[in-house]
Design a binder for these strands. Structure first.
Lengths: 358, 358
DNA sequence: TTGTAAGCGTTATCAT
DNA sequence: ATGATAACGCTTACAA
């Protein structure tokens, strides 16, 4: 046992011939405020006052300077853990996404990381694929996390107690209870459908997950809604349930192609599904878009890389993550929770997988 | 100022009609060891002893049971910050990657997260694209991070002091100074080249970044090495420098196609580059693989989604991340740093972008 | 086996 | 303007 911090050998200052320029945080010997205070000849709390760079720091300019000089000379680095313990905040945010390997979530996380980092918050990453979100939440709470961003994890499933007393921001999952940021998923479905209708399609199909994720439901609803407005119906074989993955799209499209009357256009719940569907078409010798149009949703990088390039509805994933983090940061900064932000607009990007009905 | 934790309203237990099953961590009133101790009628350190689940916990079975019961009843959750402060460890790992939006790194991080999470460590995510790795390192240190995984960030550039006293594991960047895990990048280059040579190609080209990232250098070296062994040379126009992105590959391929004598096969430093190159060929009307073979490296999911499917060398990205985390966890657990692990094998996956020379 | 006391590095509330 | 003093929640000798 006795877990040693297993520190590194620090033997090569000599080897390089270059003496450490900075006073070299002698591996292990952390410089604390006390050290700084001692060096500056002031009391420890005074040093803390200066270094905590409070705006209200009423300290004599002279001493302040001495303290800062000492801190710099010693290479003082505040211990965020200690600060967190004392202030009851950890200056860290959590982010829970289903799976980082879905490029959409990678974007969301990436955006959140950027904003969080710039604001001095660390970002604790939680993948909900391996381990249930509830568990993640528990460990985040025990880490005194200041707030958490939850994306595409059915929030209703957690409400019970895990979220109690936590600052939560939901991504793409509007809720009475928690603030959040979301894209206009309903409009995404509508735009995609409008596009296909404009191309003359009348036999449309939809592929999407049964999962209870709000954005997917709304995309689907927008699709159905727009269809109805156009006086069209959606025969049940034209509504295929499939996991929101490439594989899911592939298999759903296979089923669709086996139908008696094939659709002439398909709207997919996200780009992964659309790409899977596209792939199946290629394998089955179905020409896209000549015989079948496909529209995805998200506009992940991959969308421009498949052949033909995927027509899709662009959703600002990174911006969603960034805004979620900003919301949290603002809230933690004491600013009152803003009026519910408007839905982020989405925009159809017509590319190569959609064309006029033949 | 006065940053309020901005706690949530907790007003709907009544609305649902369901009384909180757990004693409801009354939002704000954290349950501490003291509370547990008091409830169990023991001293605070005793409770701590039990709850710290030390293997060496010499406490009477009876009291242990009482403490555990009390802890359970009160819904006790240890405060990891406090524990970290006291033990001098944070039970958190950092991971620094250039950009999460590169699927390869998303995989690495994903693998690391899985292992770290399972071992009770949190993972702090740092993207080195926006903010230099050195800064990230500084904030990680101030968070008393227990270890850090660094991928594709030129480690030599940081050595000076930032890494002092830190547990570091390098991914794909062998070093005298730090332990690490790596794929067999040299062999990746060799396998790709062997494959192309076997197909009869003699005019080969390479596209890769000038960046000083070890894996890229080695892939290139393997390529050149194998070429030499085959008695072939690499005319300088056949060595194109480009950022390791889709765009980089696209532009490099454009330059390549403009050459007087075109290559018949191209090996790319990674899949993104290869996909960019492939895309350019499609745009330029160059048939792949009939006129030009392309081989990538990494085998990201995208590789199977482009048309034709990309021939590439599979690198176990997720496994790399997982092993890096495992290495760190082991080391922190007190186990001696293992003998340098062997390079992870890579494997060529022949798909549609490579074919016999015409 | 258990309780007492001290300390981790910071912040915050007081007197002075 | 500054310096004691007391938290924050937990761990860990050392005593009882």
């Amino acid at each position: 046992m006795t877990p040693r911090p297993a520190s590194r050998s620090l033997s090569d200052a000599a080897a390089t011939g270059v003496p450490p320029t900075a006073p070299a945080t002698g591996a292990g010997a952390r410089v604390t405020v006390r050290d700084v205070a001692r060096a500056a000849g002031v009391s420890q709390p005074t040093a803390s006052l200066v270094l905590g760079n409070h705006p209200t720091a009423r300290v004599a300019p002279a001493t302040r300077a001495r303290v800062l000089a000492a801190a710099h000379a010693l290479g003082y680095r505040p211990n965020v853990l200690a600060r967190g313990l004392a202030r009851g905040r950890s200056f860290a945010l959590g982010v829970i996404v289903p799976d980082l390997r879905n490029p959409f979530f990678a974007d969301v996380v990436s955006g959140a990381e950027r904003v969080a980092g710039a604001a001095g918050y660390a970002l604790l990453l939680c993948g909900a694929a391996e381990r249930p979100a509830g568990e993640h939440l528990a460990t985040l709470v025990s880490r005194q996390i200041d707030g958490v961003i939850i994306d595409a994890v059915n929030a209703a499933a957690l409400d019970e107690d895990a979220l109690a007393g936590l600052n939560v921001v939901l991504v793409d999952e509007p809720s009475e209870q928690w603030p959040g940021v979301a894209s206009d998923a309903l409009d995404a479905g509508r735009q995609a459908t409008t596009h296909l209708l404009a191309l003359g399609h009348t036999r449309l199909a939809f592929i999407g997950p049964a999962a209870d994720v709000h954005a997917f439901r709304m995309r689907e609803r927008g699709f159905v809604q727009r269809l109805r407005e156009a006086g069209l119906s959606l025969p049940s074989p034209m509504l295929r349930r499939a996991p929101a993955t490439v594989r899911g799209g592939d298999e759903a499209m296979r089923a669709l192609l086996a139908e008696r009357t094939r659709p002439t256009a398909v709207f997919c719940a996200n780009d992964l599904v659309a790409i899977g569907a596209l792939k199946r078409c290629a394998a089955a010798g179905v020409r896209v878009p000549a015989e079948l149009s496909i529209v995805g949703c998200d506009d992940i990088e991959m969308a421009r890389l498949v052949t033909p390039e995927l027509t899709t509805v662009a959703v600002p994933a990174r911006e969603l993550g960034a805004r979620a983090a900003r919301l949290l940061v603002r809230q933690l900064g004491g600013e009152p929770p803003r009026a519910r932000a408007a839905l982020l607009p989405v925009k159809l990007v017509a590319r190569g997988t959609s064309g006029p009905v033949s």
